[in-house]
């Protein structure tokens, strides 16, 4: 039984696509299941990818199991807020800060969210599709 089948058996609400498994609001539960089930043990969260589709933002969690040498991508759609997974995977902390910085998504449960790349006084979230490219602010040092 491969991991996709196991996810489907335990979480019947998920939608399975060719290269990802989509869930509505069970992202934390699925990641917890994938990490803590011994036969799967997806122990590395490689990164968190955010894609802005203008009316919603998709978060993709690519996971790697060093034990099985397998990968799986879990995705979810969010608007303003998402669930933080730092308690499961501490490495998500910088990723969540990055998405908070560049996409403006708040991660509930991550207490130390900060702007990672942009200065803390920056207005707007650069990787959003509605971000104005021709910004009149020349330099943030002024």
């Amino acid at each position: 039984m491969n991991c996709i089948d196991m996810i489907k058996m335990n979480f019947p609400d998920v939608k399975v696509y060719s290269d990802k498994v989509e869930t509505d609001n069970q992202i934390y539960e699925i990641l917890e299941y994938l990490k803590k089930t011994y036969e799967l043990s997806f122990d590395i969260l490689l990164t968190v990818i955010a894609v802005d589709y203008t009316d919603y933002i998709e978060l993709i969690y690519p996971l790697l199991s060093t034990y099985m040498n397998e990968r799986v991508n879990i995705s979810t759609k969010v608007r303003e807020e998402a669930v933080s997974v730092t308690s499961l995977y501490p490495s998500a902390y910088f990723d969540e800060c990055e998405i908070y910085d560049l996409f403006g998504i708040c991660f509930v449960g991550n207490k130390k969210l900060k702007r990672l790349f942009m200065p803390s006084s920056w207005i707007g979230h650069p990787l959003r599709k509605n971000y104005e490219l021709k910004d009149t602010r020349l330099s943030w040092n002024e």
Binding site: D43, L45, L64, T66, N69, Y89, P90, S91
Partner: peptide, 23 residues
């Protein structure tokens, strides 16, 4: 090493077999 998402030589130095060249 796994929790903090280390990969490459840093992860292998901790004794975990993971090299994406295999795939």
């Amino acid at each position: 090493a796994l929790d903090w998402g280390l990969t490459g030589p840093n992860l292998r130095a901790s004794g975990i077999l993971n090299d994406y060249r295999m795939n």
